[in-house]
């Protein structure tokens, strides 16, 4: 019978509860400690992979090259060079210009797409999301390579147009130019923009938009007053996620940029390759990061001010 088997275990009551060791008792009492302990392997790897390399990179940027070795006496000469020699400034501003244009183009082109999926797709939403982001996961090198195939001197576009008889000789501006780099970057990073945009749009409570309509706003007004401000976090995230990695890109400029399209990434890579001036390369990497941080800070400040003004 169930009722007898369910009596509590009186006979065993005298046995003491199992007492844990001091360490596990401490862990049982402190949640934070358990959390940190559990995270420690991940953190260790990330520290080894992020913090340690940056410390050494920072150190190396204050050294000088001596043949195949380094003079490790502290100097800021490398930083002075990047400041004084115009080539570095030109490369940096070109990098920021190219990835800035690519970022703006990507966000502008992706916003309607994200908006469409967030507001107008009711069935198979998941399918759309996967379709939009799928290309992003494939090899970056190959996607850039694909554009070389398309924009090439005898590539898809030029040869296609010539076969059709629309042009006599290949359009040269397509390959080896800033335009080519911008097109490729915008295409390659589209998925990175779509996801944060979609997430921020999807989160908007649809009844807010209905309320705005109810209160007399037309489609344009309610977009500007409700949807756009509420999706701002997504826009900011998308901007960062594209702008920052693309400023350091060197594959795209190397394959498609030509001499006119080279960016700071190519120069850094040169320092570690053919030029073999690692301290200079380290300095450039640090300078690039500092500039990115500064631009990001200004961007955040401006968008926050703008949001305050709208509100």
């Amino acid at each position: 019978m169930a009722d007898t088997s369910l009596q509590h275990r009186d006979g065993e009551a005298a046995a003491p509860l199992r007492r844990p060791s001091r360490v596990s008792a401490l862990l049982h009492r402190s949640e934070a400690l358990r959390g940190y302990l559990l995270m420690s392997p991940t953190l260790l790897i990330m520290i080894l992979g992020i913090v340690a390399p940056f410390v050494i990179l920072l150190a190396m940027s204050t050294w000088t090259r001596q043949g195949f070795d380094f003079d490790t006496t502290f100097t800021l000469a490398n930083y002075e060079r990047t400041w004084n020699e115009p080539i570095f400034g030109a490369l940096l501003s070109r990098s920021f210009w190219v990835s800035g244009v690519a970022t703006v183009a990507t966000v502008l082109l992706c916003y309607p797409m994200a908006y469409y999926v967030a507001f107008h797709v009711h069935h198979r939403k998941m399918m759309w999301l996967i379709l939009m982001t799928l290309p992003f996961w494939t090899s970056y090198l190959l996607r850039v390579f694909a554009w070389k195939v398309i924009l090439g001197y005898e590539g898809v576009i030029n040869s296609g147009l010539m076969t059709l008889g629309w042009i006599d000789k290949p359009l040269e501006f397509l390959l080896y130019s800033k335009t080519a780099v911008i097109i490729t970057l915008a295409h390659a990073w589209a998925a990175f923009a779509i996801l944060p945009l979609y997430v921020s749009l999807e989160k908007i409570d649809k009844s807010l938009i209905e309320a705005a309509t109810d209160l007399g706003d037309g489609p344009v007004a309610r977009f500007l007053r409700i949807t756009l401000p509420l999706s701002m976090p997504g826009i900011i995230a998308a901007t960062f996620l594209i702008f920052i990695p693309t400023t350091g890109d060197y594959i795209t400029p190397a394959l498609l940029g030509g001499p006119d399209g080279a960016m700071i990434g190519n120069f850094i890579q040169l320092q570690f390759g053919a030029v073999n001036n690692w301290p200079m390369g380290a300095t450039l990497a640090i300078v690039l990061m500092l500039w990115i941080a500064a631009i990001a800070a200004v961007f955040l400040f401006v968008t926050r001010k703008a949001q305050e003004k709208i509100a």
Partner: peptide, 26 residues
Amino acid sequence: GFESTTAGEIFIDNQPTSDVPPHHRP
């Protein structure tokens, strides 16, 4: 046993329980 006590003690069947994790409690 899912929350620890900040102070005091809980006895179950005359056994103190503060350091006993949930899976060892009766």
